[in-house]
């Protein structure tokens, strides 16, 4: 046991050591800033928790079954919002995806524009978009549809453009060499290669959108979120328990179905 030797360690360059120290100091500074800046009244929070605990947590596990039909209707609306929104996004993202794909536009400027549009759209949280659309079309489910549609376009467009960039370009070159025009290349060279993955990503996004649309109601954009905000302001935690249960079931079922469908497609 005693006489084994480890391989010699790589010599460390001064640059690496300096870089490591700088990174370490930056992280320490970040944490110092964070912990100095955050100010929580622990005493009060603790006191409140002791007072509220028995009023909140046990009730979440005793759902109020009398609200079942209302919750079911709102969950249905949530699914519809997510479906309409993600289908819109799946279509809207196609031109943007092509624009942002380097091998389709063959121009650095257009690709950069496409990528910038997509990342700008992605930077808006869904809820913020919902706030804007609630002001635009009023507090109803359609505001939610629009928010989901725009919010998902950013991510789907990015994923689409990555799919397009990864296609086999030899097929397209061969078609070009044989004199196919742009439309023919698109329909017979590009689309057959991208359809399965596009579909798979669109279905995946539907899965994500179900979660997103369940909270849009908090700002008035329809769906189960409307009930969440009512239940919390009325401190009706039994109803909240039912809502939570409904969300968990719907999300789990749709995740499961979507995973199965996607496995079949790709």
């Amino acid at each position: 046991m005693a006489s084994y030797s480890l391989p010699p360690k790589q010599p460390k360059s001064t640059f690496k050591i300096v870089r490591r120290i700088v990174i370490f100091l930056a992280i320490v500074a970040l944490y110092v800033w964070t912990f100095l800046g955050i100010d929580i009244d622990w005493g009060r929070a603790f006191e409140r928790m002791v007072n509220n605990f028995s009023r909140v947590i046990p009730k979440l596990f005793q759902p109020d079954w009398s609200a079942t039909s209302e919750v079911a209707a709102k969950i249905w609306e949530t699914i519809l919002i997510a479906f309409a929104g993600s289908l819109m996004a799946a279509v809207l993202a196609i031109p943007l995806g092509f624009l942002a794909a380097q091998n389709m536009t063959r121009s650095k400027i257009l690709t950069a524009i496409g990528k910038w549009i997509l990342s700008a759209v992605r930077a808006f949280p869904d809820i913020i978009l919902a706030i804007l659309f609630v002001v635009a079309v009023g507090p109803n489910a359609f505001a939610g549809v629009l928010a989901i549609a725009i919010g998902s376009t950013g991510m789907l467009g990015k994923l689409y453009s990555e799919v397009i960039e990864s296609i086999d370009m030899q097929v397209i070159e061969a078609m070009e060499a044989n004199g196919a025009n742009k439309i023919q290349i698109l329909f017979y060279g590009v689309i057959p290669q991208i359809v399965p993955e596009f579909l798979s990503y669109a279905i995946y996004r539907f899965e994500v959108d179900i979660r997103a649309s369940s909270i849009l109601g908090i700002v008035g954009a329809g769906g189960i979120g409307t009930m969440i905000i009512f239940a919390s302001s009325n401190r009706n935690w039994n109803e909240m328990g039912l809502i939570l249960l409904a969300i968990i079931i719907v999300v789990t079922v749709i995740d499961f179905l979507s995973a199965r469908i996607r496995r079949k497609i790709v």
């Binding site: 955050i38 100010d39 929580i40 009244d41 009060r44 929070a45 409140r48 928790m49 509220n52 605990f53 909140v56 947590i57 979440l60 809820i127 979660r211 997103a212 369940s214 909270i215 908090i218 979120g225 969440i228 905000i229 919390s232 401190r235 935690w237 909240m240 809502i243 939570l244 969300i247 968990i248 999300v251 789990t252 995740d255």
Partner: peptide, 19 residues
């Protein structure tokens, strides 16, 4: 499966408004 905002709603009910 529980959305972040729903968790926040529950915790606000438990601890009161705050960080």
């Amino acid at each position: 499966t529980i959305p972040d905002l729903v968790l926040a709603v529950i915790f606000v009910g438990l601890f009161g408004v705050g960080l």
